[in-house]
């Protein structure tokens, strides 16, 4: 009996103290921030510096807390500097929007009409007023001779022949189609078919000549599950680009891996991909001189030929 009384007497102050401590402790509520602010990833940068274009467009977004951007301008200055000359241009922001089926989503591209020269090296820097900076350095591939395109005779197959490109990173057939359905309807589509992915490129080890084969109508027919006779080719063009090691090598990666921020990124303190390219867009047709010799067609959108 005595023991019980003593125990109670000793425990009561302990209990009261414990309760007070608990209540005081409880007054301090946490301010939970789930994001890892220590990670040194500030901006997301995607785009290409293309020597053949008169206007450069680069996608810039902050590595942000929100799933979608709200459309408001953000604190960022974007510059491109030629590392040899030190010449720097500042890019201009422009807001874009798209409806994704549920809501309007916004994104910002930065543009400049400043010159991007072949075989030069450029640093693209994105920084904010707090000193956070992401950057990437890319070299622009050399200019190349405009390739010739031989559509062939009587079918849609064609072969593009050229030289002077160490690495072809893009070779797309771009098709504008009308597809007629069995029910009598019709719809219009635009399709990009990559010849790089389709491994339709051959290269001569001795001459350096490359050939790109375009045989995409069968692929398109298969895609839409209609016979070739129901596909009307309204127009087509070829887009190809020379690249270098700034262009990511994706062959060994799964789509899941490619989505990982570090796998193919060349952005320092940021995420994304900045590539240096030199491109040309050609009509999907053959061109001949007065002697009926096959020649390169006038590019649809390129400075490469102009320089040549």
């Amino acid at each position: 009996m005595t023991i019980r009384t003593d125990t109670k007497a000793n425990l009561l102050p302990v209990i009261i103290t414990a309760l007070v401590v608990m209540i005081i402790a409880g007054c301090k509520n946490d301010n939970f921030d789930p994001f890892n602010r220590e990670a040194d990833l500030h901006f997301s940068i995607h785009g290409a510096l293309d020597a053949s274009l008169d206007t450069q467009w680069i996608r810039i977004s902050p590595v942000r807390d929100d799933f979608f951007q709200n459309g408001e301008a953000f604190d960022a200055t974007v510059t491109i500097t030629n590392t040899r000359t030190g010449q720097t241009v500042t890019m201009n922001p422009e807001r874009f929007s798209r409806f994704n089926g549920e809501e309007t989503v916004y994104f910002w591209n930065y543009w400049t009409t400043g010159d991007i020269e072949a075989e030069e090296e450029y640093v693209l820097r994105v920084f904010d007023s707090e000193g956070n900076e992401s950057s990437s350095t890319v070299r622009i591939p050399p200019d190349f001779v405009t390739p010739t395109f031989d559509l062939g005779r009587g079918d849609d197959n064609g072969v593009l022949i050229g030289e002077g490109i160490d690495r072809i990173v893009v070779a797309d057939g771009i098709y504008y189609l009308t597809i007629y359905t069995e029910e009598g309807g019709a719809f219009v589509r635009k399709e990009y078919i990559s010849q790089v992915e389709g491994e339709n490129i051959t290269r001569s080890a001795t001459t350096g000549l490359y050939r790109i084969y375009f045989d995409d109508m069968v692929v398109i027919a298969d895609l839409y599950k209609v016979p070739l006779t129901r596909i009307q080719l309204d127009s087509a063009k070829i887009y190809m680009a020379a690249g270098n090691d700034s262009w990511p090598d994706v062959v060994n990666y799964t789509p899941e891996e490619l989505s990982l921020p570090h796998v193919v990124s060349n952005i320092e303190n940021g995420v994304g991909v900045l590539v240096g390219i030199n491109s040309v867009t050609l009509p999907f047709r053959s061109c001949y001189d007065q002697d009926q010799q096959l020649i390169a067609c006038e590019p649809l959108k390129s400075r490469a030929l102009i320089k040549n």
Binding site: P34, F35, N36, A39, L41, S44, H46, G47, A48, W57, I58, R59, S61, P62, V63, R64, D65, D66, F67, F96, F107, N109, V169, V170, D172, Y192, S194, V196, E197, Y239, A241, W247, P248, V250, L258, S259, P261, V264, V271, G272, V273, V275, I277, S279
Partner: peptide
């Protein structure tokens, strides 16, 4: 922990149009 969000454009066999 998330570090943040962005939208990524895939540079692989073809070139995305950022616009």
């Amino acid at each position: 922990r998330p570090i943040g969000f962005d939208e990524y454009l895939e540079y692989g066999f073809s070139q995305p149009d950022v616009r």
